[in-house]
């Protein structure tokens, strides 16, 4: 299909805009982390060595100059950003490994968990919205959602673990080797996300049902399935998608708790260890990782939403598309 020339330029401009916002958010997060660690009390070298360390002042001064902590702040900041640009997040104080490696090694496990949880959450939320028709069902589901959202995720995890692993013995207690071991953590992590998503989708579906376009759809003789999949649910999914960053954030934050409950390896473990050891480079890495996830999710959402909602497609591109169709 021949494309009008303007669209390539628009695409480039769009990609440029996306790249700029990615850089901006990451730069902002890095700057915030840098400032925060300079504001909080405590000498990084003391923190690094721990309270019990018996180290002479000369050695401390040596470490300080190795880390560049004796140089002016602005110079430190410049060096820090320079390292980031090269993809170097520094070295973990405790593990003596590059931060990128520390996080990268554990990333797979967390991604598995959050990916599985996202799938479970989507299935649960869609089932609840599609099957929960009628007033009574909706009231009951709304009640369940309230309780699920109000229960701490680490407690639901412990209850599931107690019932299904210890009492019934259906699932392994912990570990990441056995594929069945991911079921309980994923369900635990998915529950609150599913409840929130179901609330949002149901509100969206109800709003769509009040719209005049649905009368038209019904008048055209659409089946109930087509009506919900192609019209009301699609309408509602725009609302769900704008929450995507929030939902992914819930999965990440929840993953820290769920990994602790089920003794799974992952980013959560890394984060917790870094917090208790005051391993500042790793903490900075985790903050930057969260910012990166946020930017990526939002960018994807921005690209997907116009596909779902024709009203958000830009007028010029619609004209361009029409012009491309041979008359």
């Amino acid at each position: 299909m021949p494309r009008p020339r303007g669209s390539a330029r628009r695409l480039l401009a769009r990609l440029g805009g996306i790249a700029a916002s990615v850089v901006l958010v990451l730069c902002g997060a890095a700057t915030l982390a840098f400032i925060a660690f300079r504001i909080i009390p405590g000498d990084p070298v003391e923190v690094m060595l721990g309270p019990q360390a018996q180290v002479s002042d000369a050695v401390k001064a040596g470490i300080r100059s190795d880390l560049g902590l004796d140089r002016p702040l602005l110079e430190q900041y410049g060096a820090f950003l320079g390292q980031l640009v090269r993809g170097d997040l520094g070295e973990s104080y405790q593990l003596r490994l590059p931060v990128v490696e520390v996080i990268g090694r554990q990333l797979g496990s967390t991604l598995q968990l959050t990916g599985a949880a996202l799938a479970v959450a989507l299935v649960l939320a869609l089932a609840s919205v599609l099957l929960g028709r009628g007033r009574t069902a909706r009231t009951v589901l709304a009640g369940i959602e309230l309780v699920v959202l109000s229960s701490p995720v680490f407690w639901t995890g412990l209850v599931l673990l107690s019932v299904f692993s210890f009492q019934l013995g259906w699932f392994p207690v912990s570990g990441a080797r056995d594929p069945a071991a991911i079921v309980l953590p994923a369900v635990t992590l998915a529950l609150p996300v599913a409840a929130l998503l179901a609330q949002v989708l149901r509100d969206g579906v109800e709003a769509a049902e009040r719209e005049p376009f649905l009368t038209t759809v019904r008048a055209r003789g659409a089946t109930p399935l087509r009506e919900s999949v192609h019209h009301t649910l699609r309408h509602a999914s725009v609302g769900g998608l704008t929450l995507a960053a929030y939902l992914v954030g819930s999965l990440l934050g929840g993953a820290v708790l769920v990994e602790t409950v089920f003794a799974r390896p992952g980013i959560g473990r890394v984060t917790l260890a870094a917090i208790s050891d005051r391993d500042l480079p790793v903490i900075t890495g985790v903050i930057l990782f969260s910012a990166l996830v946020f930017v990526v999710v939002n960018t994807v959402v921005d690209l997907v939403v116009p596909v779902l909602d024709p009203r958000l497609r830009r007028a010029p591109s619609a004209i361009g598309r029409r012009a491309a169709v041979p008359a």
Partner: peptide, 15 residues
């Protein structure tokens, strides 16, 4: 755009 728990966790990580 972030859930409270994640923000709180990151703040504790810093503090």
């Amino acid at each position: 755009a972030f859930p409270e728990f994640l923000v709180a966790l990151l703040v504790v990580a810093v503090l």
